[in-house]
Nucleic acid binder design. Structure first.
Lengths: 219, 219, 219, 219
DNA sequence: GATGAATGAGGATTCATTCAT
DNA sequence: AATGAATGAATCCTCATTCAT
């Protein structure tokens, strides 16, 4: 008797004002998450940070988790967008590594807080974890392809497993990006980028890398 | 003059039975944390996992946070303990890198879940974050010293900043240890250890490393 | 730097409905306290007495103690308000004593339960005790001034310390007001008021008091 | 089938050691109550104050309330004991008032904290309230008898209701005894006793009282 | 759409009391 | 008789979500 009353899933806003409020909430959610972590991430705090009242939150989002998804998706989207910069035009392999790392470093710098949180999941949410894995996969497989090509061209150590190597070196960049702001140490951006790139190049035995045969020739 | 009604911080158990219960709670806390994350980490769940009633929880710990501290401290203690294995007896530099990585990898494998959670802090607890940083620092500075010595002996690339390099390569190992179990991929332990060590050695330009002059001589 | 995660002190209600609910809770708190004492004074009981759910309690009060403060403040406010009745228009000193006592008696009658409880403090709360002391002080110092004037006019025994005397006689009235309802005895209001006033007047040796030279002459 | 298992009501201790422990607990209970009020009055706190372990508490007392009864009974007993000092030997009525007040004041000084607490009852315990009333009654009826005799002898105002008057003046003394230590003011014991007695005497119109016809004769 | 008051299930904590040693 | 660990019902409080205006 009577229709099953499910919660009226918030519809996308139709007015400009609605869209603006919605975007403000997503942005505020991200900020709260970055600055206060899980413990501060409440609908109330987010609404307040966005400058709207508590009730408005539920005008746009089904639940707290719903907002979280939108936040993560937004961050992920940003990462993908930033990675679309074409690096293939660069000819020099080492320069390409530097550019890749620059992008990866910058992207993780922005996103690491939110993505790490998503990785461990408030409610052990599988779909969030997946999203994070997809992002990693995107970068890792790009690095893997790059390495494989270099190996084929005889410019990199062919004895390395491209997948595992890409994973390890990507891990290096990601973790440095993340832990950098926990440090007291004053490594400036360029120095970090320079070292990561040189370590990366040397690790894969890149021909023509800056540190190749660092002592001016081998024995 | 206003008397301070502080909660009487639980005293350490005096009997054997007490100590056993307490230890069981810490262990159970760790297991719950590893298996269920924040969301499952409740005094009740921990007490149940330890096979005691939840009232007993408060016989030994002031609060949920108090237990968390003890869990983290215990994990940290384990990491330090495992690192005390003397590697200095090994003569060959590359073998030493392998051994170091084996230990680090194994240690993080055990501890990474708890430590990552602590890093992001349930209650944004500063002291927990510090504990995690201390652990990292311990390993990083050990790697730093090792690298510095190799540089002095002319066995590693002297143009690398030892601190930053140690940080980056340590990050690589830590992050691989952590992300390994999120992966579908079947890289076995020895293969991972082998690659990480070779990448590490190549990255610092170690003389006599397995991949040195990987193509049997440079063009 | 360690961010302080303080509970967001409930904001005063902005709407009429809110204010009504809040007031109802304070009133209910007082009733519960009067009728059931400490042991019945729970957020749940108060909310129920106010006809709202217990969650609502925390919309307006930080804690049980917070409500207690508001209740006491409200009672205290009432006492002060009731004391603002001008008695200075009355010319006859004895009539003035009677009026003062009538007010004091009535005020304590209303308030004594709550104030006694506050005096002994659920949480040994210093600020509550202070509030009670302030109320006493208000009445005592008023009586003190009255007595001093009578002494100056030669209408009261000048050998009495005005402060100590006011304290003692005020104590008499307060304690009678309080203990009256513990008694089985059927002293009606007017009789009590009459006796207290006559005792008071006689105690300070008021000229022209009802019982002055009670036997129609000494000697 | 088997006896009804009621809790084995603690038997009075048989050994000297047992009696000593028991007494220590009652004394400790009183001290805790005086110093910390209800909120601090826990079996654990009492046991600790008595220097025994928590469990021992229940060797001697059925429950927390049981101890409370014993404490109150002990305080009451002390009050009664102190009142047994014979004052009837004193001939001068005013001197007798002074002596009575001295005893009452001293007795309440000791006992007021505990008795006030008992009066309001942790668990609204009727029997405790009764005990307090009995104590008051004891003193009040004694004062009442004294007043009645004085009235019969033509030494006090016969128009006063002896019962109500005794109640009021007893209230004065009791309340002053209680509130004295809340005060900042430095009224010394003798001064307080002196004023209370003179106010009392004047209030009942005692012939031959110190302040009778304070101005050296009436109109 | 927006608001903020209201809701109550769920989680943390206390503490009087019991029990095994 | 003494000890102190163990128990769990009762209590305080939180916070995601709903609702009346």
């Amino acid at each position: 008797m009577g229709r099953q009353r499910t919660k009226p899933a918030p519809t996308p806003p139709t007015t400009t004002r609605g869209r603006r409020t919605r975007d403000a909430l997503i942005l505020a959610g991200r900020e709260v998450l970055e600055q206060q972590g899980w413990s501060g991430f409440s609908p109330e705090a987010v609404a307040q940070a966005a400058g709207v009242s508590y009730g408005t939150f539920y005008t746009y989002f089904e639940s707290k988790d719903d907002l979280l998804h939108h936040v993560v998706r937004s961050v992920a989207g940003e990462m993908f967008a930033s990675s679309l910069v074409p690096t293939d035009t660069v000819e020099d392999p080492y320069a390409r590594i530097v550019e890749s790392n620059r992008l990866y470093l910058r992207a993780w710098d922005q996103a690491s807080k939110v993505l790490r949180l998503a990785d461990q999941g408030g409610a052990a949410d599988e779909s969030l974890r997946k999203m994070v894995l997809e992002i990693r996969e995107f970068y890792v497989s790009r690095a893997e392809k790059g390495l494989r090509r270099l190996q084929e061209e005889g410019l990199a150590n062919p004895r390395l497993n491209p997948r595992l190597t890409a994973l390890a070196l990507g891990s290096m960049v990601e973790q440095v990006a993340h832990s950098r702001d926990s440090l007291d140490e004053p490594f400036d951006d360029e120095m970090v980028l320079d070292h990561l790139s040189r370590l990366w190049a040397a690790a894969i035995g890149l021909r023509g890398a800056p540190d190749e045969g660092w002592a001016g020739g081998r024995g």
